[in-house]
Design a protein around this nucleic acid. Structure first.
Lengths: 226, 226
DNA sequence: GCACCATAAATTGTATACAATATATATGGA
DNA sequence: TCCATATATATTGTATACAATTTATGGTGC
């Protein structure tokens, strides 16, 4: 493989492989193998692995090295619950800045998603789905929040790798187009609700042990729906 | 100084110095000086500095090394706005888990704050104020959110160092006791509102250039208050 | 005195060496 | 055959060496 690659490039490359499920949870990441693959010394690789560890994408055990994180069920719930709380919260700000250009940009992205779906290119589909969410967050104008959400999106991909069912991914797509249309029409509350439901749906598609957290609420289940 | 200190210890030590305004924004953090101070090689120090850089507490410029971050006004606003959004959001969850033990714990903490205030121990006061906020966040049961808020608290300390007025710190204290009493009484909405107002007050105590972001809203200003 | 350039000192970037630890393999006894 | 132990191999942890770059110093001309 070619030489003299920046740390940032190596970081993105490894992250991408994990997010796209090429490197499954638990996969060992030996420093000298990576060192050889990227043609850089172990020093650079360690730096990248430590960064990924801080972001919880990778887990480093003392004297045992790095492996792709195996998120716990607890962590899975917390990450998804965080997204359910935060992403709808940013919708009003996104809408304030919403323009025709944005709309076109995101429609283009949905097109790419559908293309990946048709070609059964799981890797691209996962990556695009996450990208849709964090790019939207970035349009809120609050980059501090957006970067946090971006990390949660990467962690979600890992969580889907660990707890997702066969169709978790494609099913998830649930058509981001609907959201765009709501934003075009300026329907704040419906857009917020869509986002909440969308993420809740992803969460419930995970094969997590049932707990208090997701006891069936018959009241809600059989209430009149819109 | 004594030898063989863990990376974690060094990290906390440097973080503490920055949060407590011993190391002001812009202060250079030369690797070999720190290396000597902690009795470890530059390797360990670099690792710690890189972590702090990812957390935005420190800024590393290529070939120029690390210095304590100088947050921009934009960043200051985004961090505070994020806290204004998030911390009230966690109040309901905190309340669900609220117990007499918690109450006592936080009352103890307020006592310590007041002690620090009386002794004019600015460093402790800043640290305790931040700690109050992030410990509360941890009692929400969502550690993913709590860790993010913890980071935002550290960044806030840095922001106060950069943009705070003389009495930003002591004034801020605005009595955390009030919040505890609201939680004791189970007043969710009032507690949420208290938190929002408290953080908004901190934000407006900063010497930031006036922008759209904080134009005076007369409507709101002269509305009937409770 | 001040700007400018050359040189010296200090500081960071990167690779590598060696020690410490963990994992894998092989050997011997029950 | 299986398990325990010893040895060998592989892998990580840490310090250090050297190159690359920046910052400081000093001298020269104007």
């Amino acid at each position: 493989m070619s030489n003299n690659l920046s740390d940032e490039y190596i970081y993105k490359q490894i992250l991408k492989s994990i997010v796209e499920h090429q490197l499954p949870p638990g996969a060992r990441l030996p420093e000298d193998k990576l060192s050889e693959a990227f043609g850089r010394s172990r020093t650079s690789i360690r730096k990248v692995l430590q960064r990924l560890a801080l972001e919880r994408i990778v887990t480093i055990a003392p004297n045992k090295g790095a492996q792709v994180s195996r998120p716990s069920e607890q962590e899975a719930k917390e990450v998804l619950n965080s997204r359910i709380m935060l992403e709808p919260l940013l919708i009003p700000e996104v809408l304030k800045r919403w323009s025709n250009t944005n709309s076109k940009h995101f429609r283009q992205m949905v097109k790419a998603e559908k293309q990946a779906e048709k070609e059964e290119d799981q890797a691209s589909l996962i990556q695009l789905t996450a990208q849709f969410h964090y790019e939207l967050a970035h349009f809120s104008g609050n980059s501090v929040m957006a970067e946090f959400i971006e990390q949660l999106c990467y962690r979600s991909s890992l969580i889907i790798a660990a707890f997702g069912s066969r169709h978790s991914v494609s099913c998830d797509c649930g058509d981001h187009l609907v959201l765009i249309e709501l934003l075009d029409k300026g329907e704040v509350q419906r857009a917020e609700k869509w986002m909440r439901d969308h993420l809740t749906h992803i969460k419930s598609s995970l094969k997590l042990t049932i707990s208090d957290d997701q006891k069936i609420n018959f009241q809600q289940l059989f209430s009149t729906m819109d």
